[in-house]
Structure formats: structure tokens, C-alpha cells
Amino acid sequence: MAKLGPAGYSPYPVSVTEGVLTPPPGKALMFNEIVDEEVAMREAAKAMLTRENPTIFPGPQVLYAWNEEAKRKAKFVRKMAEVLGAKIIPMYDYRPKYPKIDPEKEINPNHPNLTIWHNKIKACIFIGVHCHYANVALKIIRAETDCFTIAMCSMAGHEDAMITLRDQHSEDLEKFIRIAEEVKRELGK
């Protein structure tokens, strides 16, 4: 099961080795359980609203205006950050940086743990990060930190995130924002 870290360099830092796979279309994955998307969205919002220093990590697919959908998504990411009271730290590209990154301003898929440690981030959302880099980064975060990871993926999702939402397009982000507002009210925030 995709446990919350720190797993250290455990022999099983990869959740597929424990039989956890991405959810089928129309469903979401919460740890090792396949659930309805709304259930997962509520839990994701709750994690972001209750854990310390929640942060959204937007990747190139939403940071750059390469099509109309990307422009719409960027607006929703901003809105989402407002509702969740989250910081935005971009993963603007995937180049490893030498000698070091500025963890207050950026996150790098090759050592995402540095940004998470530095800012003491306990919940985060990955959105618009290309799958192969999200896969790498989420594994490192899972093994090296106690951060609750949420993947909002426009494709099949990421089993290494604690919550993975698949096929997320702008209308789904809108839905998530609505749910987050509800959860926020329920929490009296």
C-alpha cells in the first residue's frame, strides 16, 4: 500500500510492487483503494485544508499557454490555490539544476524532496506535470518525506500519489473547486 512516508530507502518505494495500480476510468485511487471521484476530491480538499503549508505544484502543461485548455486550467489552478489557502511553487521544466535549486521558488522533479523539506509542506497537488516526471517525483516524495501527495492528472493517474484523480480537465478542476469550497465551509474555515 502506498503508505505515507518516510519510507526511507525501503525495498518497496514503488506502490506497484505492492499491487497498487492506477484507477479505472471514472474512478479515483485513495492509497490502495479505488473510490468514486467525489470521495477522493473531498479527501484531497480536506488534506489540503487541514495539513500544514499546502502547496500546488503546477507543471509545464498548465504553466505555459500552449493551447486554450492550458489557459483555462491556469485560471482554475489560481482559483484552487485561493480556496485551499495554498502556495504555488512551479515545476516549470525538468532540467536537473546544478549546483542547487532555490527551494522557495521552484521544485525540480530530480529532487522534489528539497522543496518539500525546506518549506515543510505536508500536503501538495501535482497538476500539469508530464507523467514520466510526476512518476519519478512522486516516488521520491513518498520515500523521503511525510507529505500527502495528490495527483490531478489529465491522463491515467499516478499510483504513487496518496490520492490520484485521473482524466482531469478544466471542468473537473471546476468541480474540485466547488467541492473544496464545501469542505472548507464544513470545516468552518
Binding site: V62, L63, Y64, W66, K71, A74, P90, K105, E106
Partner: peptide, 17 residues
């Protein structure tokens, strides 16, 4: 276009980008 940053998120990008 790949280098055009979305206006909504520009303020979060490092100056070099």
C-alpha cells in the same frame, strides 16, 4: 508558444524563465 507563460501563473515563475 511553448515558451509563452500563462498570465495567471506568471508571478510565480522565476525571473530567468
Amino acid at each position: 508558444k511553448i515558451f509563452k507563460i500563462n498570465e495567471d501563473l506568471k508571478e510565480f515563475m522565476p525571473q530567468e524563465i
